[in-house]
Simulated scan of single mutants.
Amino acid sequence: MTARAAAAVLLIAAALPGLARAACPGNTQIEMNDCAASAYRNADAQLNAIWPAARAAAANWGGDGMLLDAQRKWIAFRDAACAVEAGQYQGGSIQPLVHAECLRRLTEQRTADLRGLLPL
């Protein structure tokens, strides 16, 4: 990687929300992409773990159907939003990292939102 390309990657990475937080180690783009994908899978597992409790909490007031509908719409939103965010890097080696980071960030936020539905 040339110095110019490395500087461009650093500038892009600095501009990506939450990328530093994900703290993916790696010396190659492939390693960083794999790490970001793993971080997303972990976030998705956390969301899936809290889902049954959130749905049960919503069922207590008759809102489980509304929550399921909202979750389906949120998934469509997440996928579309992350496609747009990563789309500007179409064809570039950083695109998978940007896409996975977006999925992770939005999934973690949704998990926090679902936790808010749980009784105290």
Rank of each mutant, 00 (worst) to 15 (best):
N27G: 15
N27S: 13
N27H: 14
Q29W: 09
Q29T: 10
E31I: 10
E31H: 04
E31G: 08
M32S: 08
D34F: 12
D34K: 11
A36F: 05
A37Y: 09
A37D: 13
A37R: 14
A37H: 10
A39E: 14
A39V: 13
Y40N: 12
Y40G: 05
R41W: 12
R41M: 14
N42P: 02
N42L: 03
A43Q: 01
D44M: 10
A45S: 12
Q46H: 12
Q46E: 15
L47G: 04
L47P: 00
N48H: 06
A49Y: 03
W51H: 01
W51M: 14
P52G: 04
A53F: 06
A53S: 12
A54K: 04
R55D: 00
A56G: 06
A56S: 09
A56V: 11
A56T: 12
A57K: 08
N60Y: 13
N60Q: 15
W61Q: 15
G62A: 14
G65Q: 15
L67R: 11
L67M: 12
L68A: 10
L68N: 04
L68V: 06
L68M: 02
D69W: 01
D69H: 02
A70V: 00
R72E: 02
R72F: 01
W74Q: 03
I75V: 08
I75C: 04
I75P: 00
A76T: 08
A76F: 05
A76K: 10
F77P: 04
R78F: 10
D79Y: 14
D79P: 07
A80T: 15
C82W: 05
C82S: 08
A83K: 13
A83D: 15
A83L: 03
E85R: 14
E85W: 10
A86R: 05
G87P: 13
Q88K: 05
Y89T: 03
G91P: 11
G92P: 12
S93V: 13
I94N: 04
I94H: 00
I94V: 06
Q95I: 08
Q95D: 10
P96L: 09
L97M: 03
H99F: 06
E101L: 14
C102G: 01
C102H: 05
L103D: 06
L106I: 12
L106S: 08
T107H: 08
T107N: 09
T107Q: 09
E108F: 03
E108Y: 04
E108N: 09
Q109R: 04
R110A: 10
T111R: 13
A112E: 15
D113R: 04
L114K: 05
L114H: 00
L114T: 01
R115N: 07
R115L: 07
G116F: 08
